[in-house]
Amino acid sequence: MNRHLISAADLDRDDAIGILDTAEELARAEGRPIRKLPTLRGLTVVNLFYEDSTRTRTSFEAAAKRLSADVINFSAKGSSVAKGESLKDTALTLEAMGADAVVIRHPASGAPRRLTDWVSGRVINAGDGTHEHPTQALLDAFTMRQRLAGGPDRHGRGLDGVRVTIVGDVLHSRVARSNVLLLATLGAQVTLVAPPTLMPYAVDTWPCRAGYDIDAELRKSDVVMMLRVQQERMSAAYFPTVREYRRRYGLDSSRMALLPEHAIVMHPGPMNRGVEIAAEVADSDRSTIVAQVANGVTVRMAVLYLMLGGAAEGSA
């Protein structure tokens, strides 16, 4: 694996499957009463969050703590960051604290990549602007493999031939970017569906298909992933009204009926119930939304273990 996890493109197929397999074994340990492992004892993981994201931060925190790492939460609010300290100066502070890994969430695309220039520890991207969110893609892939490639045989397997349709604000979605890259690496066939205004400009250079007709795509999907629609997109004229968006791109129960029998419905959260996804769909047994949250911890444990659990490269 690369030294840092900035983009899903940092993972080759073996890396990605290795993470999923490791998470699989860790998920077994999760089922047992004692859930703390000594693996990362003595190591310090810093959660550096410039955006509020309780879910992602607590997921990383739980993962690090279950591996016995020391966790420092460094949030932008109420710290020197809020007083205008630069990312570089914050990085130097973390360096002085002896951070072995920095998990960073930042509103600016590329901030985690810049951070790698200034810290000696590993950097894990926990979502940067409209760029990427690779651990979300990993937990999504893990959930897909769990649900669609059942049985003990899934160890070592990718998602070859699995048809995934991602619907919504692809343009601003770091989840979509990471999922497209990771799912392509794992052999899945990804189709993006969005209003043309929310489709990235050069989407034809991405390893996926793109279209505007949700109903046609749903009929041939094993997985449909609904992306959150931010309210502020409406005022920027990406689409006329929420009502029209819901009608053309929302997933309600009649649309869900178009899906093949075995297909699953995913959402990276937080959901806008009644906008991109209807409540009865979110709560249906096809929905993996709760499982995605639970899988988040084990997948992040796997990432932390594989990045921090061994020797730094070169010293082996």
């Binding site: 695309s109 590329g110 409209t130 990427e132 990235p200 400009y201 989407v203 250079t205």
Partner: peptide, 10 residues
């Protein structure tokens, strides 16, 4: 606005 910006999320 092109391939690079789209990949970088800029």
């Amino acid at each position: 606005e092109g391939e690079v910006a789209s990949r970088l999320g800029l």
